[in-house]
Amino acid sequence: MARWGMVIDLDKCFACQSCTLACRMENNTPVAGPDQASRGRAILWNEVLPFVEGEYPEVTMALIPRPCQHCDNPPCTKVCPVKATYKDEEGIVCIDYGRCIGCRFCTVACPYQVRYFNWYRPEWPEALKEHLNPDPEVAPRPKGVVEKCTFCIQRLRKAREGAEAEGRPFTATDYTPACVQTCTGRARYFGDLDDPNSLVSQLAASPRAFRLLEEMGTQPKVYYLKQG
């Protein structure tokens, strides 16, 4: 059984936000529009966050792409009163939208703020519904549930089906989330952290590797490599 993880090399990431848009198109997160966006309700599972440091002219800015960290010790699952959010056998933190009662305890508990609440039934201008991804896992979520990055879990299912159809065993490299596939700087790596020969497990052991808010003990499966 794989333990899926991601490595993002900040030295190769140029904050182009292709991951952000690829994620939206793959996972059918709705268009928030000017009103909801101005209330901070835009749903982008894979946002890039800016952090400015210093004063002009000695100013630097860290730009951190932030998907769900898929913690091995996730705070969100522990507070869910209905077991709607859980970590599956392969380490992916999932949400059962049918179980979710919208209490948003998980949203508060998540120190990375990756969980988004559907304040309304998602709306698109009619014409734009044509391009929605028909994969069942990403059918637009109903009003009142929480959603977030799933490592494109539909792609895992499709990769397994594809391997089966070709009559060969499924391997970790068959499975690539949308953000990884499109990354213009090829800064994202994805794979099985438990496989010592995988690129992700080796990069995760790099001296440049760190995880966000590591001191909280959440044990994220998203690693970052320092810039420079």
Partner: peptide, 16 residues
């Protein structure tokens, strides 16, 4: 119990 199942059953979007 699965992510996909719940969504497929419940949300009934036009695309689906």
């Amino acid at each position: 119990t699965a992510v996909g199942a719940a969504v497929a059953a419940a949300s009934g979007t036009r695309a689906l």
